[in-house]
Amino acid sequence: MQQLSQSLYSGVLYGSVYGLMALGLTLIWGALRMLNLAHGALYVVGAYAAWALINLAGLPMLLSFLIAVGVAALMGLVLQTTLINQVIGKPGFDNASLIATVAAATMIESAMLLMFGPQVKTMPPVFEGNLLIPGIQLSIRYQDLLVIVIAVASLFAMSAFLRGTRYGMAIRAVSQNMDAAKLMGIPAGQVFLIVMVISAALAGLAGVLLSSIFFLSPFSGFLPMIKALIVTIFGGLGSIKGTIWAAYLIGLLEASLQVYLGASIALPGLFLFMIVMLVIRPNGLFGLGEGRRL
């Protein structure tokens, strides 16, 4: 019983954060048709910005979180305007965007290494203490609860934004059919920029939240990015509903593998699951074909 509740709780925690990461990846894939391999680097930017603001500038934590997300978003803006805009729409975009994002990730991560050194950093928790649930012997850290609340609220906000606002509709239109969207007068370049900034902000937020639970190093964005990629593909590339469902399913799977079989099994187990999944159902959980996205 305790194991079950523990894995459920960890699963929801992981799932919420993976959802944030994966949503950014899926938005970029939907709009730009690009696999952003710099997503993990944006995660790291957010996390280090928060760490620096709290520990070096001494700002209050929640304010630092907010600014850190802004810093990550700014980084996304810079990435889009200086690099991605130069290769977008040109022949060989697949190759070029892959190399461009790898190059960006290399630059960002080595810059972080130069600025903050290779030592592992830890972020102090916003709230100390645990919430004890006696019946099932489960202790929930307030910090984790905060992470879940922020992540879920952001997911809902994003969902509302994409469904309800003009900008959200423009993003969905571009993802569904770029040519038709352009003919309807939607400025695709502006949509790309918005998507990149949002996605970077989400990655930065995930970095801020997850680094208050795990350690932070210049390369700690890699595994969350890989897991987000698993989530994105599992949920069906470009599908928002699928991504969020998949995030929680993958989170639960990882947590139960950890609780029942041990931490060293979790990662290989996830990958094995992914391979089997891709062989059986290559279009992902919600199986969107090429025609319908978002």
Binding site: W29, L35, L37, D94, L98, F222, L223, I226, L229, I230, I233, L237, S264, L267, P268, F271, M274, I275, L278, V279, P282
Partner: peptide, 28 residues
């Protein structure tokens, strides 16, 4: 065998996963 039937993004993911798994195995 499982990877090459799939398209670009999937190949990136699965080969990165393979790399990471091997690194994990050879380290731990």
């Amino acid at each position: 065998l499982p990877t090459l039937r799939l398209r670009g993004v999937y190949v990136v993911l699965l080969t990165l996963a393979f790399h990471e798994l091997l690194r994990n195995f050879l380290t731990n």
